[in-house]
Design a protein around this nucleic acid. Structure first.
Lengths: 211, 211
DNA sequence: TAGATTGTTAATCGATTAACAATC
DNA sequence: TAGATTGTTAATCGATTAACAATC
């Protein structure tokens, strides 16, 4: 199987959004130049990215908007959303549960966990907050593959271990900490400090470049 | 001035965290190998990254933890945090205000804005929520350089325009939308769909690679 | 001195951009 | 047919990794 570059994967949601907009605007055909313009990506890049997954366009014509939209839905796994549990039902955790159109991006959060007795048993967004002790059994029973960590940094490594021993294959970490996980575990860090460092650098230096 | 690679900028906060941990553990000296191990980065990469900013180590010895920590504080701008306004005082906006140790990463949010009359006038985290109409004057008066957008996607482009005409130089966008901004504006998108696309791809494919 | 580790150059790897034949 | 646009190969660019002389 052909190895997909990581930057390519990251651009797919941008294409998807642009296509949604084009579709709502009633466009039936879109060129790589138009799609790139809308997504903020070079047109050659657009074509290259798409060909990793197949041939979707017609030379001299362009791409059929709804066909490409469906193809991207398939590729991004929006048809059968991944199920996840979220640990840490604080403000960040709640914000993630509520993330605009989150379900639309292929993720379904099925259970929340926290240590705080005040939170346990409460409903957040239609989901009950369970005590951490039940994490392992629930993850195992439901066969959950993704664990989302939105705890304070100090707790995150311990939670990661619990999630892994409960059987998740991927961890989406929002705690500002460098987690250690075995190599077979897929780890993605969503780290605001990274974004901030970039912004702050371009602000201080005499730069014209995009962050 | 030497151009700093973007990935290098993104790794600085990881080094910073590792050094904080080392410092708290009482370590006085750390090698690039140890620092890399802790930050999840190759040791050659660590040395290369640091030399963009100066020479901080001693051959045969390593790096002085507290010296390097201070240097990184300087580089990351943690000494004089950037001031920002945040538009969109919903759950995501509040979560960002409360982001653990956020101030420690060099950002100070000084005002919140929203359109919702129910939110306007309320206090969030010690900050008052102002009506959108006051955005321009407040940003101008305080000379704010960073605007954080945590509105729904539909509103984001309009807010971006307002922020730019009010004089911000950088936009940190959390709305899932491809914003159009003039080239001199520094734009950073914090896009959960990007992370999710990556995770979801590695989950579905037979992959061992890290996201 | 012998062992360790930096800073830096060179080699490798991977991603982006340019160019264009094939196709509609 | 003439004009447009894809898919793909080749050229360029940029970042990572390897290697090692200089230094402690």
């Amino acid at each position: 199987m052909l190895e997909i570059p990581k930057p390519t994967l990251g651009r797919l949601p941008l294409y998807y959004r642009s296509l949604l907009a084009a579709s709502e605007a009633g466009l039936e055909i879109i060129s790589s130049a138009e799609l790139g313009e809308s997504a903020g990506v070079d047109s050659a890049q657009v074509r290259k990215d798409l060909t990793y997954f197949g041939q979707f366009g017609r030379p001299g014509v362009g791409y059929n908007v709804s066909n490409l939209l469906m193809a991207l839905e398939q590729i991004l796994g929006l048809r059968n959303p991944n199920e996840a549990v979220l640990v840490g039902a604080g403000k960040l955790g709640m914000a993630i549960c509520n993330y605009p159109g989150f379900a639309r991006y292929g993720l379904k959060i099925v259970a929340l966990f926290d240590v705080d007795p005040n939170k346990i048993g409460q409903q957040v967004d239609g989901l009950e907050v369970f005590p951490l002790e039940r994490l392992e059994s629930i993850v195992k029973k439901l066969g959950i593959q993704i664990g989302i960590i939105t705890t304070p940094a100090e707790a995150a490594q311990r939670i990661a271990k619990m999630l892994i021993s409960a059987g998740v294959r991927a961890i989406w970490n929002f705690a500002p900490v460098n987690l250690k996980v075995p190599p077979e575990i897929i780890l993605r860090n969503e780290d605001l400090a990274v974004g901030l460092a970039t912004l702050s650098h371009y602000l201080s230096a005499e730069h014209r470049t995009k962050a």
